[in-house]
Structure formats: structure tokens, C-alpha cells
Amino acid sequence: MHNIKSHLPRKIPQKFVAVCLIFAGLQLGGCANLGVQPWERDLLAREDMALNSDGVDIGLDEHIYFSKEATSGGRSFAGGGCGCN
């Protein structure tokens, strides 16, 4: 049996991490110019604008996708668990 698909080199974690850190650093540096004044938060303060506004749904979905797919986490901790189904 042969895997006839040509494999591209995929082992890039170190470079990948470096790029991410640089990107995150640049973002932090540029943050001072972005944003709003405290009195401009009317829309951002809306309940439906919270990053975790569908928290229970997200938890349920992450349990399903954790059990059915190879990747988990990203939004928060990937954690452990079985997923033996």
C-alpha cells in the first residue's frame, strides 16, 4: 500500500511560533491607536456583542467537534477527555 499523494513538508512549528509571536507583538504595539473612549461603548456593551454571548452553545459544540474531529481548542483550552466514539 502506498500513499501516492505528494507530501509537502509540514513540520514548521518553530517558525510558525516565531511568526505568531511577532504578529502578536505588532498587534499589541499598534493597539494604542485603536479603540474608543469610555462613552463610546454603547454598542460594544450590548449583551450580544460579548465574545462568549453563546457560551453554553459553544461548550456543547466543542464537545461534539472534540469527539468527531482531530483538532480541538483554540478559542480556549483544548483540555483532555476521551472522545472514544
Binding site: 509571536l21 502578536a24 498587534q27 485603536l34 454603547d42 456583542m49 481548542g73
Partner: peptide, 14 residues
Amino acid sequence: QVVNRRMLVQLNYS
């Protein structure tokens, strides 16, 4: 990061 009155972004590395 709050971008403006209407937009915010989140970036995570894990």
C-alpha cells in the same frame, strides 16, 4: 482589541 465603536477582534495562540 476594540477596533472602533462597532468592532472588536480577538487573536489567540495556543
